[in-house]
Simulated assay, not measured.
Amino acid sequence: MSTRSMEKPPLWFWIVSILALLWNLMGVLAYLQQAFMTEEALAALSEAERALLETRPAWATAAFALNVWGGLLGCTALLLRKKWARPVLLISLVGILVQMFHSLFIGKNLEVYGPGEISMPLLIILIGVGLVVFARISTKKLWLG
């Protein structure tokens, strides 16, 4: 059994990891805002937006929770330089893909919010994939152990 020591990561590793953590914190805040939406906030939505939230299946909400909490945990693991960041970020990516599949193909998000709605899901998917790749590269470069 060979023991390889960890290498010191470059400055950009820390910058990317901190930005990724902040990105995922915004996702957690969006999830909490939705999960604990008051009756007043729900009433302030349009009828179509309210219907989207009220008819969302539990599995789509669970995927949302998995993606944001997994992303937060995975990015925390990056900052702690733990190689388990990659599988956690991969689980988060699965949550992203399931949530976005629902939003784009099953739910009526595009009808309610318009074609501009596709840009944010695509950005979220791209960042999710990028974080998994970043964690893989960081593990190969021995920045994570």
Rank of each mutant, 00 (worst) to 15 (best):
F101R: 09
I127R: 03
V68A: 05
L73I: 11
P57D: 00
M26F: 13
L79C: 01
A62M: 06
A58D: 13
V112M: 05
G71K: 00
K83E: 10
I125W: 03
K82C: 13
A30F: 11
I125F: 06
A58L: 13
N24G: 06
M120D: 08
K140A: 15
K108D: 06
V68L: 06
P9G: 00
T61C: 07
A35H: 07
M6P: 06
T38P: 07
N109W: 10
G71W: 00
A35Y: 09
P10M: 05
L19A: 15
L110V: 15
G114H: 02
S103I: 06
A48V: 08
A35T: 14
S138P: 09
M120G: 11
I106N: 09
V129C: 02
F36N: 12
I124C: 04
A135G: 11
L123D: 13
I124D: 10
M1A: 15
I118R: 13
L78Q: 03
E7T: 15
L32F: 12
L45R: 10
W59R: 09
G130A: 03
E39P: 13
L93T: 01
T38M: 05
W143Q: 14
A35G: 12
L93E: 01
L104S: 04
L22M: 11
V28W: 09
A43E: 15
K8H: 14
K8T: 13
W143K: 03
A63P: 01
V129H: 01
L45M: 15
K82L: 10
V129A: 00
M37T: 12
K82G: 13
N109L: 07
I118N: 03
L97N: 02
W84R: 03
L52T: 12
L45T: 15
G130I: 01
L53V: 07
I15A: 03
L142F: 03
E111N: 11
W12S: 10
E54A: 06
L80D: 11
L90P: 00
V133H: 08
A41L: 01
T139H: 06
N67K: 05
A43G: 11
G116S: 15
Q33R: 10
V88S: 05
L89K: 06
F134L: 02
I18T: 14
Q34W: 11
P121I: 09
V132F: 00
K141F: 04
A35C: 12
G71L: 00
V112H: 03
I106C: 08
C75E: 05
L25N: 08
S17F: 02
N109M: 09
P10A: 09
L131N: 00
L78A: 04
A43V: 13
C75K: 05
